[in-house]
Simulated assay, not measured.
Amino acid sequence: MTNIVITGASAGVGRAVVRRFAETGNNLTLIARNETRLKAAAEEVRKAGGNALIMPLDVADADALDHAADEAEKAFGPIDIWINVAMVTVISPVAKMTPEEYRRVTEVTYLGTVNGTLSALKRFNRRGRGTIVQTGSALAYRAVPLQSAYCAAKAAIVGFTDSLRTELLHDKSNVKITVCHLPAVNTPQFDWARNKMPNRPRPVAPVFDPELIADGIYHAAFHPKREYWLGFSSVKAIMSEKISPAAGDALLARTGYSGQQTDEADDPDRPDNLFKTVEGDWAAEGRFGDEAEESSAAIWTSEHGGSRLFGGAALAMAAIVALGTFAITGPRRG
Rank of each mutant, 00 (worst) to 15 (best):
Gly306Asn: 08
Thr106Asn: 14
Lys74His: 07
Leu28Trp: 03
Glu100Gln: 15
Gly25Arg: 14
Ile4Ser: 12
Gly306Cys: 06
Asp80Asn: 15
Thr161Glu: 13
Gly116Leu: 10
Val278His: 13
Leu251Val: 00
Val175Pro: 02
Gly306Met: 12
Ser10Asn: 10
Arg270Lys: 15
Glu43Trp: 02
Trp282Asp: 14
Gly159Cys: 00
Arg142Val: 04
Ile299Cys: 04
Lys172Gln: 11
Glu107Met: 12
Gly259Pro: 00
Leu164Phe: 07
Glu73Lys: 04
Trp192Asn: 07
Thr98Pro: 04
Tyr150Thr: 13
Ala322Phe: 01
Ala214Cys: 08
Tyr257Cys: 00
Val144Ala: 13
Asp290Cys: 02
Val94Tyr: 10
Asn186His: 02
Ile4Tyr: 06
Thr187Val: 11
Ala250Arg: 04
Thr7Glu: 09
Val88Ile: 13
Gly8Met: 03
Arg127Trp: 03
Arg104Phe: 03
Glu303Cys: 13
Phe160Thr: 06
His219Gln: 09
Asp281Asn: 15
Asp209Gly: 09
Gly248Pro: 01
Ala265Lys: 11
Ser173Met: 01
Ile79Thr: 15
Arg20Asn: 02
Arg127Phe: 01
Ala237Ser: 15
Glu35Asp: 14
Thr98Asp: 07
Glu23Val: 05
Gly306Gln: 08
Val114Ala: 11
Tyr218Asn: 13
Val207Ser: 05
Glu294Arg: 15
Lys122Thr: 11
Glu303Met: 14
Ala237Pro: 04
Lys236Cys: 02
Ala153Leu: 08
Ala143Trp: 00
Arg46Pro: 03
Arg126Asp: 14
Asn125Trp: 00
Leu230Lys: 04
Ala237Asn: 11
Ala265Leu: 13
Ala32Gln: 04
Asn84Trp: 05
Ala69Val: 04
Val133Gly: 06
Thr24Leu: 07
Ala86Gln: 01
Ala72Cys: 12
Glu44Tyr: 03
